[in-house]
Design a protein around this nucleic acid. Structure first.
Length: 333
DNA sequence: TTGTGTTTTATTGCCTCC
DNA sequence: GGAGGCAATAAAACACAA
């Protein structure tokens, strides 16, 4: 693989001198939109072909006069031993990185926007147009893709962060609602127990006639006040939770975009909010509620599998982002 | 001027595809 | 096995505050 390594593939070694010279000679013309290869290639050795035109802006400011001198001297065929030594020293400096000109970068950017992949033909053409080595163009595209990917990751992170914040707010609201309802249940339960205590005492001291009373009395009368309270509690709970649920699921938050599936919680957390907390009610109360008063599903807690929505995506961490955002596929490499 | 952080260019090693 | 892509990294160039 060493063939594609090294300084721009070919043009290195003995041709470096020419490369450096050419790089500096092009500076005055770098703002032109016309590649000037022909100007420099004519009359020069073949090693000029495609030599890098990377330009340091420092060079523009500091080294133009010198490089111009060197350039013209090379064409004037003047010979001077001291200057030759100086030249040799200059040219034998290790090749330094030189930045692309603004024009070159702009050209490459435009090309990148059209297509961030670089086919060989396009690479050759770009290199030709810009007076760069094809390898340099390839490297630029590679680095540009890396930068683009980094930016994309940052964007995706921001989207995820926003989504998380929204979900957390929803979750906090639901927890508050749950606490409120729990307090209400406790309060009403206490009330009920107190009342039952009072009525229970009077019943036990009363005659048995009442216990033999015909059961044909209206249902509303046969249901104790405590049971009525329970019905009220359950109805209230169902209503409140439904509204809370709809608050969450109807919101603009991304997690509900797929039609009501609530993927907002980790599996371990879901029992805290979306399913009945076993500690909220005693087992007897729950039995009463489910057996005597209401069918189980009407208790009002949303179970994920009961939600009326299409099948969830295979990825349970779906947040409702557009497909391209979920996949993190910036492109198909 | 200098120290420091950021950006850009280029290399290296590994991987995949043909 | 070669070509090309990517991640990680080096190092030069650059920006900027002190």
């Amino acid at each position: 693989m060493a063939g594609r390594r090294g300084i721009y593939g070919g043009g290195s070694g003995g041709s470096n001198i020419n490369t450096v010279l050419l790089q500096n000679q092009r500076l005055p013309c770098s703002s032109s939109s016309e590649p000037l290869d022909s100007l420099f290639i004519s009359g020069s050795s073949p090693s000029f072909l495609g030599s890098g035109s990377m330009v340091s802006f420092k060079d523009v400011n500091k080294e133009n006069s010198r490089s111009d001198r060197l350039f013209f001297r090379s064409f004037d065929q003047e010979e001077n031993r001291d200057e030759d030594l100086e030249l040799e020293e200059y040219f034998h400096q290790p090749e330094k990185k030189r930045r692309l000109t603004a024009h070159q970068v702009h050209f490459l950017e435009s090309s990148f926007e059209m297509e961030n992949k670089l086919e060989p033909e396009r690479k050759i053409q770009l290199a030709k147009d810009l007076g760069l080595q094809p390898r340099q163009v390839a490297i630029w595209f590679q680095n540009r893709r890396a930068r683009w990917k980094t930016k994309q990751l940052e964007k995706d992170y921001e989207v995820l962060q926003t989504s998380y914040d929204s979900l957390k707010t929803d979750c906090d609201n639901l927890l508050k609602e749950k606490d409120k309802l729990k307090a209400e249940v406790d309060h009403l339960t206490d009330k009920l127990l107190l009342k039952e205590k009072g009525t229970g005492n009077s019943d036990s001291s009363g005659s048995n006639n009442q216990s033999k009373a015909p059961p044909q009395e209206p249902v509303s009368d046969s249901v104790s006040e405590g049971e009525v309270s329970k019905v009220a509690i359950v109805a209230c709970k169902q209503e409140d939770l439904s509204s809370a649920k709809s608050d969450v699921l109807d919101s603009e938050s991304p997690h509900c975009n797929d039609g009501g599936h609530s993927y907002l919680l980790e599996p371990g957390d879901s029992s805290n909010v979306l399913e009945p907390d076993q500690s909220d009610l005693s087992q007897d109360e729950e039995d009463n509620l489910s057996n005597n008063l209401l069918p189980p599903p009407s208790y009002g807690f949303l179970k994920i599998e009961d939600a009326d929505c299409p099948d969830p995506p295979a990825n349970s961490c779906y947040f409702g982002f557009p497909v391209e955002d979920q996949t993190f596929g910036f492109w198909s490499y």
